[in-house]
Design a binder for these strands. Structure first.
Lengths: 348, 348
DNA sequence: CCGTGATTTGTTAGCGCTCACAATGACCTC
DNA sequence: GAGGTCATTGTGAGCGCTAACAAATCACGG
């Protein structure tokens, strides 16, 4: 590894060594057509020899393009945000952009504003916010930003360009699956009230039950963590034998906690209580029992999010709508019985 | 949200509006002491009104500091890398640096080299590589880089500055715990051969057994995934009753698969076979049964990694060694029995 | 052998900022 | 009141690059 020579070579250095003007070097690097092959080869050889690299700051200064995008995220150790982050970076890199990330411990107006400031200092041309909390997104709309912002992971209902998975549909798929398997009713362990996704999933669950003529039972709340699922599971165990036969849990991690609580209470899954999760984290297939869940395509979310942001940056006419919803998919495993009895008409 | 005015205001604009020279504006922004309070206030007011922001490219061009660090990672949906990434970004931001990430699907010489190129184009001042694979790290040492590189997560045995958790110690803690609980021998499901961490954990396991006078049994290999753990678990189940009473699994995800396979084979944990994992992912506490495992402090890894990189960048005399190993910690849960019998002397 | 147009190369002027240094004025000291 | 110090402000140069334009070179038909 060689580095830290006192002064890295400049374009002028390369030009001198190759016996051309700096502009010719610039043309070679820019793949300009009107350069004689022999000249190009000579310049490239000198570049190779000296290890020359264009100074990105000087370039950005004159072109007014930093080719850097920002991403603001939180909870990146969770599967969903981590996958989204990954997909965003990959999509941006494919377009020749660099991605700078700021990861927040908690998403509030201050932290969000600081994050945007920090990214702005870094000269990003636009920002994608992985912001699943409603309050944060609302504030995002207020903030005065010198660059475009796209929100990812917060459904519609915001005034900002957004890309997200159709949570309402996912919840309908999950609930319908349980009803179709013969359950008369479905309980729901929801995520934090402030999260758009949690609200959408709860709404989809409620709508499906009502459409099927079932009275939605008491709604429980967790905070996405296995622990909160465990606590809710203990409460749910108390309702077994009193009408509880199926639970739709708003994410897989909480479902894991629920499974443990039920198991410890002597409740069998799926014989006594069927459980459906949401996310399809890699571990879900190996839970006890393997978890039926709803899979989200984060990769598509990332690609579409970057595509939308670039449209905004480059001022292109919008090729797509400013609000995109991507379809999730039900993955059936052993924590539910697949359609043992076809019950009375469940509308799709 | 306001943006995309045709030309953002420059320092000269602010200077004109405030009736001062551009240099005075620069001084205000740089918190220079010798500016009269009244002048400073006037300048700040104009900055506020115009929404002026310093052009980071122009600044970087003249200061030769982009205040941007790069991170190369792979498998960022795994708990370990994701946590490390998070910790790195947080530590860098605390020092006023921006972090640009490149996430690789697979870590090879080409992809790594491309990633460093991409970051270099973006003008990073240094790079942290979350590179747990030995081959990749070896190549990193060969690559000619115009900036310093620090490796994180690959133990010692590389020629590059590195920060990592002491995997050997972690494996010793796990194995010793099982021996201390009365097991005569401990099996091991290792990670991929190419991974430094996998090798270190296997070495620690072997060393502990040999020190205790036990003959290390056949070593199994997985690829970190729950599925590979499940397959290995099926094989392990066949050895129950033939000397297998304890397994040390090289990560929690594989341990999850092992637990499922054992359960399906009618083997009870921990009564028939005790299991220890590695990582302490948030889910481990809710496995069936809750998993005894080894916790790694990724946050410290991140902080130390950034600290080391900044030392290298700023050419400071090394305040710390160029190879740092951080102590992991055993977390005992229900998948093992804690010390029911104190067996013949197990050396620490 | 010169004019015409295409190709290839060089020259100049900034991009917006910070640094080094010069200039100004206020305030002291003897 | 001359000379010195300090705090405050301004001036000019230049970081390394690209864009626009100017100049040189070449091919070739008349």
């Amino acid at each position: 590894m060689t580095h830290a020579q006192l002064r890295p070579p400049t374009m002028a250095d390369v030009a001198r060594l190759a016996g051309v003007s700096h502009q010719t070097v610039s043309r070679v690097l820019g793949n300009h057509p009107n350069v004689r092959d022999e000249t190009r080869a000579r310049v490239l050889r000198v570049i190779e020899e000296t290890g020359y690299r264009r100074n990105s700051s000087a370039r950005a200064l004159v072109t007014r393009r930093t080719r850097t995008l920002g991403v603001v995220a939180s909870d990146t150790t969770l599967y969903g945000p981590a996958s989204t982050l990954f997909a965003l970076e990959e999509a941006a890199r494919a377009e020749g952009y660099l991605v700078s990330t700021v990861t927040l411990r908690k998403l509030t107006m201050e932290t969000l504003s600081e994050a945007l400031d920090h990214l702005s200092e870094g000269g990003v041309e636009g920002v994608v916010a992985i912001a699943p909390q409603r309050s944060a997104v609302a504030e995002l709309a207020e903030l005065r930003c010198p660059f475009p912002v796209v929100v990812v992971g917060s459904g519609p209902g915001v005034e900002i360009p957004s890309v997200s998975v159709d949570q309402h549909l996912g919840a309908r798929l999950a609930t319908r699956h349980l009803l179709a398997a013969g359950h008369r009713n479905v309980w729901h362990l929801a995520g934090p009230e402030d999260w758009q996704e949690a609200a959408d999933r709860a709404a989809g669950w409620r709508a499906t039950l009502e459409a099927a003529g079932a009275e939605p039972p008491m709604l429980l709340r967790g905070d996405w963590s296995p622990l909160s699922g465990y606590r809710a599971g203990q409460e749910l165990a108390g309702w077994v034998g009193r009408g509880l036969t199926a639970v739709f849990v708003a994410n897989d991690q909480m479902a894991l906690g629920v499974l443990r609580a039920l198991r410890e209470a002597g409740v069998r899954t799926p014989q006594d209580v069927a459980v459906v999760g949401f996310d399809d984290i890699p571990e879900s297939e190996y839970f006890a029992p393997p978890l039926t869940t709803v899979r989200q395509d984060f990769s598509t979310v990332g690609k579409r999010g970057i595509a939308m942001l670039l449209e905004l940056i480059e001022g292109r006419p919008p090729a797509t709508a400013r609000r995109i919803a991507i379809e999730p998919q039900l993955v059936v495993r052993a924590s539910t019985f697949p359609h043992p009895v076809q019950p009375e008409g469940v509308p799709l």
